[in-house]
Write a protein that binds this DNA or RNA. Structure first.
Length: 910
RNA sequence: GCCCGGGUGGCGAAAUGGCAGACGCGGCGGACUUAAAAUCCGCUGUCCCUUAGGGGUCGUGUGGGUUCGACUCCCACCCCGGGCACCA
């Protein structure tokens, strides 16, 4: 009995393909490279090899890109489809800490598990191009890019990064000055300080997100809206620290504008736009009575006549300077917190505000709080003296950290004004029916002097013109995006290749000394703490002195002890695949220009969770590399698709803890775990819900091809879908049936040499047409359905025509490569189906001679008539009117109106 | 609150202005079998009528609209999922 032995078939072919190196892809200039073929570069977001291995949710996108790659390979493209591993970073290190084993060891072990599992899926990766971000040969170039960032500045005139040596040249020639000071008037130390302040990678003391439990600082992007760490969900505290920063803000406009050039999901583009948060408006200078001035940012400079008070963030540096000694006349009791003098009141408020975590600020339902500083500003337009408050609804981190409050046109200001009994002046005329409080809609300006009558946009232009001509401000643009905090105090990351001199000067590690390898240390655990005031200490502080200190030309330098964040390695990996063994360059120009082409990666597939972090950082690095001439496209990923998640049942016990879903038993609709009742939940498959399904188990029971088809058949790629083990049998049956259509019990091929004809031939060509279209548009679920239909049509036949047999296998091969390769060879083909030609269809067969014409009477379908596709309108209407079923509804009356869309529809109105 | 995505049989889904529910799971009936599994064949949205051939009716979250014709386009709303959220 010869039956479909998937285990043997799948293992044998995977071995054969590997032995033949059939998925190896030559670069331009390599032997076997065919320049006449079109190129296609397909990339998966590479995985983080965790200790628990893959579950069936991970490879959903990988299966899709593999099918797409195989399809285009058969259509004659040079397809580059690589895979690698993102192995530095917190999760690997946290796991290593928990188990007490060196992260290199655990990472190596995890990598092996992931490689084995991915190989078992039969993916057509060119494994020769694979690497992990932890390979010194790889992170050498990650460090090299960092040095390029360190060695570059952003030219505000050309809006491009340029080598800092060119800045020095311009400074020396006098074409530029250093913040208003001539270069020749600066000391060497001041020059170095100035240059360091211009670099794309620079050190600055800024308020950062300090996570004592992880023992490291985190980027804004790595902190949840609740003010906790994205990894591990630990509390995060804001505090000022000296850290490495990357000047991503210089690229804000380009990162925003170039989104237009990308074929990306609108939701991801929107998230990036929101994150960048560009706001056009104006800075306005307000004089402070008896003091200096304050600047505010506003998007509504047209409403300045309605500014009836001012607010500074509690942390605003000017607060100490302006706060009065005593409460001035007219101070209302609710402005003082009931405290006798402004200084004490301001201190008390600041303390209370700093104690509030971000989470608490939200729980407070945005109840407005604040306190009067005792100082007044002058509204430059009205000349009115208006009180200055501090309040935590104004954030130090945005704009200038201070606002002019216009309650008439701003809901937040309105709330505050009501609570603190402050005047409200409308400066935009609301429509008569308007009943709300603050009015933010369109309308003519009122109570606004020379702006009265102007609509908002015109009023903005006029007032900005006025401000600029009176030295009271200027039009400006503000962004939510902050520079990227780039240093981490952890061990398991790329060392930052910088040396610190005795006088604090910064020196790049020479390129020929890269990679700067991670030193071996005995105790690699982070300096974690429960104490929010604990000082951050880099793990590399525990490195031996001969690593930490370097002598160059008689000067002793201390190495930078911080490491790079996890995102560094994933910022550019798609470039290294192109030329992974190049010791002299990041990537050769020839390989980069060929594979990246005009628009970069042709298809990039991954989870939507990287919408802001990875995708924004990678775009930033790519643009820097573009400016410096190392890559030829302005964007890395021309087309992006977010695959959906695999969802599954999960179960919680009475304490709310998730229990392993595969240990839960169901009896009469009641779920129990170890005899205890559990509650059924539903969510994304993964470790946290303990509802993972291991692909190894599915392979063992049904095979690789079955799982691949099943995951594609469940629904469209972008949609999330619930895992259902019982549904897999459908695709398994399909492959069994396919096998039986081709092979009988004795192993004889059930194929005839007669050509297909009639309905079967039409079905065959329609299937080719439909599957080809579905493959192009990544609609694999419907492609599978079409193949099911063709296969079902073959079931009643004693022998299937050879042409059908050959086509069917090639259409299915991208989805189920193993069984198709086996049957392909059993049909007598010598070459691999992997490189067989994709079938073509005959349009004379797919466009049929007759069609079913629907006859509608008053919009309802009353009859269906077989007609030739070439039928004329007169014939069709005559046919329709003579139909007995139609006559029953028309009563023989002539229709008042006839609409014909031939040959599909004749619609009669009576 | 704002911005995305979604809501179609018992379930996963298909159809993007023209026959709603392709395909698969599940279910029901039948064949094969000592029996079961596997396999094969048929049926399977609702309700009503039926002379047993069929015929009709309602039906894609809700309500309205545009159209000869709407799952598909427009308006309002409800629900689910995701993102953002005192960003001036």
């Amino acid at each position: 009995m010869v039956s479909y032995n998937f285990r043997e078939i799948e293992q044998r072919w995977q071995q054969t393909w590997a032995d033949q190196g059939i998925y190896r892809v030559p670069n331009p200039g390599d032997e076997g490279f065919d320049a006449d073929k079109p190129k296609l570069y397909v990339v998966d977001m590479f995985p983080y090899p965790s200790g628990s291995g893959l579950h069936v949710g991970h490879p959903l996108g990988y299966i899709a890109t593999d099918i797409y790659s195989r399809f285009h390979r058969m259509r004659g493209a040079n397809v580059l489809h690589p895979m690698g591993f993102d192995a530095f970073g917190l999760p690997a290190e946290q796991y290593a800490v928990e188990t007490g084993i060196h992260p290199r060891e655990t990472t190596e072990k995890n990598l092996e598990v992931f490689r084995r599992q991915l190989t078992a899926f039969g993916f057509s990766y060119d494994w020769d191009r694979s690497f992990a971000t932890t390979d010194p040969e790889y992170y050498k170039w990650t460090q090299w890019i960092f040095l390029k960032l360190f060695d570059s500045w952003f030219d505000d005139v050309t809006h491009k990064a340029r080598p800092i040596s060119e800045l020095v040249t311009e400074l020396e020639s006098g074409d530029r000055d250093a913040d208003g000071v001539a270069w020749m008037n600066l000391t060497d130390a001041d020059r170095a300080t100035f240059l360091d302040s211009q670099r794309l990678a620079y050190i600055d003391e800024v308020p950062v997100n300090w996570c004592p439990a992880l023992g490291t600082v985190l980027a804004n992007e790595e902190v949840t809206p609740e003010g906790r760490s994205d990894r591990g969900d630990f509390p995060v505290y804001r505090r000022p620290l000296r850290q490495w920063m990357l000047r991503i803000t210089a690229y804000a406009d380009r990162l925003l504008d170039d989104l237009e050039t990308l074929e990306w999901p609108e939701s991801v583009a929107t998230m990036q736009r929101n994150w960048i948060g560009r706001s056009e408006g104006a800075n306005i200078v307000f004089d402070i009575e008896d003091h200096t001035q304050m600047r505010v940012f506003t998007t509504r400079p047209d409403t300045v006549f309605g500014a009836t008070y001012m607010v500074m963030a509690p942390e605003h540096p000017l607060v100490d300077e302006i706060v009065a000694d005593t409460w001035p006349d007219g101070t209302k009791p609710e402005w003082t917190l009931g405290i006798d003098d402004p200084k004490t009141a301001v201190e008390a408020y600041r303390l209370a505000a700093s104690r509030k975590s971000d989470l608490e600020r939200q729980v407070d339902e945005r109840d407005k709080t604040g306190v009067f500083t005792g100082a007044f500003a002058i509204n430059p337009l009205t000349g009115d003296s208006i009180p200055i408050f501090i309040a935590d609804y104004v954030l130090m981190g945005y704009g200038t950290g201070a606002i002019m409050a216009v309650p008439g046109q701003d809901e937040r200001d309105w709330e505050f004004a009501e609570k603190f009994d402050l005047p409200i002046v409308r400066t935009v005329q609301p429509p008569p029916e308007f009943e709300g409080d603050a009015y933010t809609g369109p309308g003519p300006a009122i109570n606004s002097g020379f702006l009265d009558g102007l609509e908002i946009e015109d009023a903005k232009k006029r007032i900005i013109f006025w401000l600029e001509h009176n030295g009271a401000g200027e039009g400006t643009v503000t962004y939510k995006l902050r520079d990227w905090l780039f240093s981490r105090q952890r061990y398991w990351g790329e060392p930052i290749p910088i040396l610190h001199g005795p006088n604090g000067e910064l020196k790049a590690v020479p390129e020929d000394q890269l990679p700067l390898r991670l030193p071996e240390i005995d105790d690699f655990r982070p300096n974690a703490s429960d104490d929010e005031d604990a000082e951050p200490t880099p793990s590399l502080a525990k490195a031996p002195d001969d690593w930490k200190f370097v002598e160059i030309d008689g000067v002793t330098y201390r190495r930078e002890l911080n490491t790079m964040p996890q995102w560094a390695g994933s910022c550019w990996y798609y470039l290294r695949y192109l030329d992974p063994h190049n010791d002299d360059e990041l990537v050769s120009e020839a390989a980069e220009r060929y594979w990246m082409g005009e628009t970069g990666v042709d298809l990039y597939v991954g989870g939507v969770e990287h919408a802001v972090l990875h995708l924004l950082y990678a775009r930033f690095w790519h643009k820097v590399l573009f400016d410096l001439g190392y890559v030829g496209t302005i964007e890395p990923f021309g087309r992006l698709i977010n695959q959906g998640y695999i969802l599954a049942d999960a179960f919680q016990d009475s304490r709310g803890m998730f229990v392993p879903a595969d240990e839960v038993v169901e009896h009469n609709g009641v779920f129990t775990h170890n005899g205890e009742p559990v509650e059924r939940q539903f969510g994304k498959m993964g470790k946290s819900l303990k509802n993972s399904v291991n692909p190894d188990d599915v392979f063992e029971e049904y095979g690789v091809d079955t799982l691949r088809i099943y995951e594609m058949f469940m629904g469209p790629l972008e949609a999330s879908r619930p895992w259902s083990t019982k549904d897999i049998v459908g695709t398994y049956r399909f492959l069994q049936r396919l096998w039986r259509n081709y092979v009988d019990g004795e192993g004889e091929m059930l194929v005839s040499d007669e050509e297909s004809a009639g309905d079967l031939r039409v079905l065959l060509h329609r299937t080719i047409e439909a599957v080809t279209k579905d493959m192009e548009s990544l609609h694999f679920n419907t492609a599978v359905a079409r193949l099911f239909e063709l296969n079902n049509a073959l079931v009643p036949m004693d022998r299937i025509p050879r042409d059908v047999a050959n086509v069917m296998l090639r259409l299915l091969a991208p989805l189920a490569p193993h069984i198709c390769e086996e049957l392909w060879h059993m049909l007598g083909h010598d070459g691999s189906i992997v490189v067989a030609d994709w079938p073509t269809f005959d349009t004379s067969l797919t466009t049929v001679a007759s069609a079913t014409m629907v006859v509608q009477v008053n919009g309802k379908v009353r009859d269906r008539i077989e007609v030739p596709v070439s039928i004329t309108e007169d014939q069709a209407v005559a046919l329709a009117l003579s139909s007995k079923k139609v006559l029953a509804h028309t009563g023989g009356n002539q229709p008042r109106k006839v609409i014909a869309k031939l040959p599909n529809v004749v619609s009669l109105v009576v």
